Simulated scan of single mutants.
Amino acid sequence: MGNSCCFLCACVDQASVGVVERWGRFLRLAEPGLNFFNPFAGECLVAVLSTRISSLDVKIETKTKDNVFVQLLCSIQYRVLRQNADDAYYELQNPREQIQAYVFDVARAIVPRMTLDELFEQKGEVAKSVLEELEKVMVAYGYSIEHILMVDIIPDSHVRMAMNEINAAQRLQLASVYKGEAEKILQIKRAEADAESKYLGGLGVARQRQAITDGLRENILNFSHKVEGTSAKEVMDLIMVTQYFDTIKDLGNSSKNTTVFIPHGPGHVRDIGEQIRNGLMEASSANI
């Protein structure tokens, strides 16, 4: 706004509009450029209004539906309507305070119907609602509301800390689930490997015992053919005694063995030999 000017002519800047009065009563609007007035008829330029877009930052403190106090930072962009510049000059004494009051009223009517999460998700809808309501009111006073930007939503500091802790707890829970699944898969793979190892070990032991059995059978047959008058039992006893003394010799040569001794002697060796021989005979009978 400018001061009253009662000269014969005045220049109005671009993106501005002048208000001309005659004897204190509104006469007309002065367009940008050179304008002539008749001071003798009481004409004078009383104000120059800018039609450029102005910005008003508003901080609103309100409460959400879940009883969380928040601060909303809004940026209202408005301008004077050129064709209604006289209303903008005469109707409102302080348009910025009027706009701020309407923003407070609309925002505090909408935000309490939303939870904090909904407010973050639908802040664009809140800005749109404020724009629609504010535009309906301010157009009657010669102002156009161009945009309303919801710049920031600031919850209470304790609420922010609680939200961060909840988020951290959820992420830790998800990490624990993934870690448990990984350990489960690892244990399954270990069990499968152990089962496979035991299966292959069993096959190896079975083949080893089969080879021992075949070797003993071959040795008994060769010894019986080469030494006449010997029976299979005598040959088996001889082999068992030989293996017995070889085992005793191996135990004596090593000082780091942990050995459990069982009752032994020629009689016990004979008993063991009979058990092995009976097992071989039963296996041979089963094969036949």
Rank of each mutant, 00 (worst) to 15 (best):
206 A>T: 14
230 T>M: 08
140 A>I: 04
218 E>Q: 11
171 R>M: 12
196 E>A: 13
216 L>A: 04
161 M>F: 07
207 R>N: 10
198 K>M: 12
181 E>I: 06
141 Y>F: 10
163 M>S: 04
151 V>R: 05
152 D>C: 00
211 A>S: 11
208 Q>I: 10
193 A>Y: 07
158 H>S: 08
159 V>E: 06
198 K>C: 05
146 E>S: 01
232 A>N: 07
145 I>A: 00
210 Q>D: 12
203 L>R: 07
191 A>D: 11
229 G>R: 05
149 L>H: 03
197 S>A: 14
228 E>Q: 09
235 V>P: 00
170 Q>M: 09
154 I>F: 00
195 A>I: 14
160 R>V: 13
183 E>C: 04
242 T>D: 13
228 E>H: 07
221 L>G: 04
144 S>E: 00
151 V>S: 02
203 L>I: 07
198 K>D: 06
170 Q>R: 09
242 T>A: 15
236 M>A: 08
240 M>A: 13
189 K>A: 13
235 V>W: 01
225 H>F: 11
152 D>P: 01
177 V>F: 07
194 D>Y: 06
169 A>L: 15
234 E>Y: 00
195 A>F: 11
208 Q>K: 13
187 Q>F: 05
162 A>G: 03
189 K>T: 11
181 E>S: 07
236 M>Q: 03
238 L>T: 13
229 G>V: 03
179 K>W: 12
140 A>K: 12
212 I>F: 07
153 I>N: 01
143 Y>N: 00
154 I>T: 07
217 R>L: 11
245 F>V: 07
210 Q>A: 14
212 I>Q: 09
237 D>I: 02
224 S>P: 00
211 A>R: 11
165 E>W: 05
194 D>V: 09
151 V>D: 02
241 V>D: 06
160 R>D: 03
222 N>L: 12
233 K>V: 13
150 M>I: 02
188 I>K: 10
157 S>A: 14
208 Q>F: 15
153 I>T: 02
197 S>C: 09
229 G>E: 05
226 K>S: 11
188 I>Y: 07
154 I>A: 02
140 A>N: 12
206 A>L: 15
197 S>Y: 09
196 E>M: 10
198 K>H: 07
245 F>P: 00
187 Q>M: 10
172 L>E: 11
158 H>Y: 05
206 A>W: 11
161 M>I: 13
221 L>C: 09
140 A>C: 12
201 G>V: 10
232 A>G: 06
155 P>Q: 01
218 E>H: 11
197 S>R: 11
199 Y>V: 09
147 H>C: 01
167 N>H: 08
182 A>N: 04
200 L>A: 08
205 V>T: 14
156 D>Y: 03
216 L>T: 05
189 K>I: 05
233 K>E: 12
174 L>V: 08
207 R>F: 04
192 E>V: 06
219 N>H: 10
181 E>P: 01
235 V>K: 01
228 E>F: 07
161 M>P: 00
169 A>N: 09
161 M>A: 12
145 I>N: 00
209 R>Y: 14
199 Y>T: 14
235 V>A: 01
177 V>N: 06
146 E>F: 00
156 D>H: 08
171 R>N: 10
